[in-house]
Write a protein that binds this DNA or RNA. Structure first.
Lengths: 149, 149
DNA sequence: GTTGAAAAAATATTGAG
DNA sequence: CTCAATATTTTTTCAAC
């Protein structure tokens, strides 16, 4: 789908606050809310807009520790291994990567004890992985609302 | 702030679709929409809900390549270095971590050429960093809407 | 593609249990 | 904390340009 500057302006507003009323989006980009509605619908259908998500503070819901986890997967066990990773509570993202690791996870845990459990009882126990490394997130200095548009 | 099961149920719904009308949230958790409204307000004020964001497909807006970038920061240059990283177009996340890297970035770029530019003209040029490693994301197998609630 | 206007629906607010 | 009722806004639809 081809996006013009109007579409991008709408995206930028909804990236920042997905609950902005279309009527206000319309005011800001100087168009009617019917147009905004129409364009948003088309972008949803085309998959440009994948969804709308409330961002919840992990600490507020009991997760004091976040980490990236690098994993090496044994040849030929990729699909099986990934399937099982997804089931583990606390695993928030699973990325396949080039470089030092085959898989990079983002995980959350209540505390370091829980993280240890997650790593040694869930991940390390699993067959198909060789090496792993846990990189605890000391702080997140910056987090954009999505890709620049 | 203390969260009860009702708050958590509301959070789960809004994590999945932040534009769900409060009236429907109310139906689903079997409460009045005024209650939902009240609880959402309190969770917003308490910072439990950090915001609402439209999730935009990076490919649809011209970013064909995503990557994690690990960086080593020279002693004593941390603040300065982080400040400048934030300015670079395409840098979406900046995390301070333990382990092999001091900083892990998530970046997006139009293509591998752009990524190369980003790394060698923006990041590598910057003083304060020693080693870096780029881990290109071949695919994202799973991405939760946020922490489990 | 865009618009304005009407109808339907949702949100914000208030007052009371 | 919860609700019902109300007033205000917004979403949604549609004929017309």
């Amino acid at each position: 789908m081809e996006l013009d500057e109007t579409d991008r302006a709408i995206l930028r507003i909804l990236q920042e606050d997905a609950r902005t009323p279309f009527s206000e989006v319309a005011r800001r980009i100087d168009m009617s809310s019917a147009t905004v509605h129409d364009r948003v619908n088309r972008m949803e259908e085309a998959g440009v807009i994948e969804g709308y998500h409330a961002s919840v503070d992990p600490k507020a819901v009991g997760y004091g520790v976040s980490a990236f986890v690098g994993l090496r997967v044994e040849q030929g066990r990729e699909e099986d291994a990934l399937e099982r990773l997804r089931e583990i509570d606390g695993v928030c993202e699973i990325h396949l990567t080039t470089g030092e690791w085959d898989v990079i996870l983002k995980v959350v845990a209540a505390d370091t004890d829980s993280l240890r459990e997650l790593m040694f009882e869930s991940v390390a126990e699993m067959e198909g992985f060789s090496r792993s490394q846990t990189m605890i997130i000391l702080g997140t200095d910056y987090e954009a609302d999505g890709p620049p548009v």
